[in-house]
């Protein structure tokens, strides 16, 4: 671990917030008060947290359909996000956007576009905005490996390089575009190599390890900030959930199980990996880790209860009747 105890716990806490929100969605979805497609970030928390932990508040970010982790890691309000999932006016997009279109002007999270690779060209414009208004901020454009199947992904790399814009393109490679593996879709599967061919600086990191992501992100961000040139950061991790729908492929956070998994050096769970790294280097932080693993999900569950009650109240006032439950979920 090459970070202070404070930063280490901050990263762990933020990842657990993201996981707990996703687990809350899984738990609540069957009540049919949260609707629409939900693309969860379970297994990919370290990508968003590692990168955005080394960003500054004035940096701007933009995301994709899988935007929960980015919104939360950029500092978007947890309550406003949950309200948005319930379609409430108090939601971060006033109930007009839903899961795939979270927005927070306050946190400089400039929303999410859910048609690939829509937000990657927009990230170029955010970079141009940053450069021209002289705030010395950086634009961070998150995308998945699927976005790099599309042509305008590369138009974006090229234009950002030509115009010398401070954009960090973060390509989150979970190896799957919906359900089709990367190797079945791309002849050259090394996204960094393609970025270098466009003249960009590029780095890779294993995104099971949040501190490895943070380290790599700090390095490329330094480059972007000091040279006003774009860079690509290609991150690899597993999506431990369905492409879409409230289905996790791992168990909800349980402190005991998480501490046991933390000792497994080959874990693919970035939260277990983070706990493991902390306990290995700073065993005295065990109490703080346990507090986060237990306290955060409790707080998030309370947020869901609050939003659920507000949703029921809203429906009562508006005279809305919930539709009958479906026979099964389509995932």
């Amino acid at each position: 671990m090459d970070v202070t105890a404070e930063v280490a716990l901050e990263c762990l806490e933020r990842m657990v917030v993201i996981r707990a929100v996703e687990e809350g969605i899984c738990a609540e979805y069957s009540n049919r008060n949260i609707r629409g497609p939900v693309h969860l970030s379970i297994g990919q928390e370290a990508m968003a947290v590692g990168v955005l932990n080394v960003c500054r508040p004035e940096d701007v970010a933009v995301s994709t359909h899988r935007d929960h982790a980015h919104y939360l890691a950029k500092g978007g309000s947890v309550g406003a996000m949950i309200d948005e999932l319930y379609g409430l006016e108090s939601g971060c997009s006033r109930g007009y956007g839903g899961s795939m279109h979270l927005f927070s002007g306050e946190a400089n999270f400039m929303g999410a576009s859910a048609v690939l690779p829509g937000s990657t060209p927009i990230a170029v414009g955010l970079g141009l905005g940053c450069k021209l208004d002289g705030r010395r901020a950086v634009a961070v454009g998150f995308s998945g490996d699927g976005a790099s199947d599309e042509g305008s992904f590369f138009e974006a790399l090229n234009l950002a390089a030509v115009l010398k814009l401070p954009v960090l393109f973060v390509c989150e490679n979970n190896g799957l575009s919906t359900n089709t593996p990367l190797a079945a879709r791309q002849a050259q599967t090394d996204i960094s190599a393609k970025a270098r061919a466009f003249g960009l600086v590029a780095a890779n990191a294993d995104a099971v390890d949040v501190f490895a992501v943070r380290r790599a992100a700090a390095e490329v961000l330094d480059h972007v900030r000091s040279t006003s040139q774009p860079a690509v950061l290609a991150l690899t991790a597993d999506r431990l959930c369905a492409h879409v729908g409230p289905v996790s492929t791992i168990d909800p956070i349980d402190t005991g199980a998480m501490l046991a998994e933390a000792a497994n050096g080959a874990t693919r769970d970035p939260i277990a990996s983070c706990v493991g790294a902390i306990l290995r280097d700073e065993p005295q932080l065990r109490g703080e880790c346990i507090e986060i693993l237990e306290g955060v999900p409790t707080r998030i569950a309370a947020e869901f209860r609050r939003a659920n009650a507000a949703f029921e109240d809203r429906n009562a006032v508006a005279g809305l009747v919930a539709p009958p439950p479906p026979k099964s979920h389509t995932v």
Binding site: G118, I122, G125, L126, L128, G129, D133, S152, N158, L159
Partner: peptide, 19 residues
């Protein structure tokens, strides 16, 4: 460059930041 999709995308992103 001759890349209409990113030209428009770039305009959108910059407009969101006030340009």
């Amino acid at each position: 460059p001759i890349a209409e999709e990113v030209i428009v995308g770039c305009a959108i992103g910059s407009a969101m930041l006030g340009l």
